[in-house]
Design a protein around this nucleic acid. Sequence first.
DNA 1: ACCGCTCTTTTGAATAACTCAAAACAAGGG
DNA 2: CCCTTGTTTTGAGTTATTCAAAAGAGCGGT
Lengths: 140, 140
Amino acid sequence: MDTDFDTALRGAGLKATAGRVAVLEAMESMAHTDAERVYRAVSEVLPTTSIQSVHNILADLTTAGLLRRIEPAGSAALYERRIGDNHHHIVCTACGAIGDVDCVVGEAPCLTPSSTGGFTVQTAEVTFWGLCPSCQNAAQ
Amino acid sequence: MDTDFDTALRGAGLKATAGRVAVLEAMESMAHTDAERVYRAVSEVLPTTSIQSVHNILADLTTAGLLRRIEPAGSAALYERRIGDNHHHIVCTACGAIGDVDCVVGEAPCLTPSSTGGFTVQTAEVTFWGLCPSCQNAAQ
DNA sequence: ACCGCTCTTTTGAATAACTCAAAACAAGGG
DNA sequence: CCCTTGTTTTGAGTTATTCAAAAGAGCGGT
């Protein structure tokens, strides 16, 4: 069952510890989640865990490429399992809900800026702002 | 001299106070700056100012539409004077330097997502990540 | 199966960047 | 010029995150 996670962790050069497996398991059922929610989910399985450890684990998994970290303005850092594809996010300006948005064009042509001012572009990140379905209803 | 700022403030329905004028003046010479740098600049003219007041003023000016607030992941909130045009930012992953990037296409066609999952899109925000010129040299 | 080296986690504390609230103060219309 | 209302000050509190040192657990090798 968690052999998948084990191999994924070792493949990334990390030890397969209980905490890391628990974090990955918890993230399976949550699309975009902050450190605190991960902590609460992991706590039920591994009560000895601390919030600091979760931060640590999330940071490790992010640099190892197993998670992606996003930081929409106005909210805490969020982590997501979906990686390796070119997708973006839409954030509800009212309640902060987050949705995934597939980029229409695979390698996004217009995401190559015209004048970079000498900067070298590595990645482009797009965030949409709007209203989620339930906040649209509430706004009536 | 500061009549321009006065009228701009009143036009936005705000009182033209010394603090606000000083903030706008300070921002003339800084492209992208955080609250702390604004505070230091304003302090030289208005020593009684506190960092909280600066935060307050910046928030007011932002909601009034006189400033724009950006929050790149991993750094404090930044404010910029340039508003009303559709421009984006490029952030150096090494030193955090920020540059402006004009959007090639005015109303960015590909910035309309395909599947919004029921969300209503209001604005799209693009952040490029890369290396600034001086960090490119340092990386050699 | 066991041992020990090394990587992880725990524990504890510190920090940065805001935010909130109440009291003192100033802008500007009348 | 004064009063009302919006603004700033003062002071305290919060939250997400980071740092550091000590305790603990993987896992490759024997």
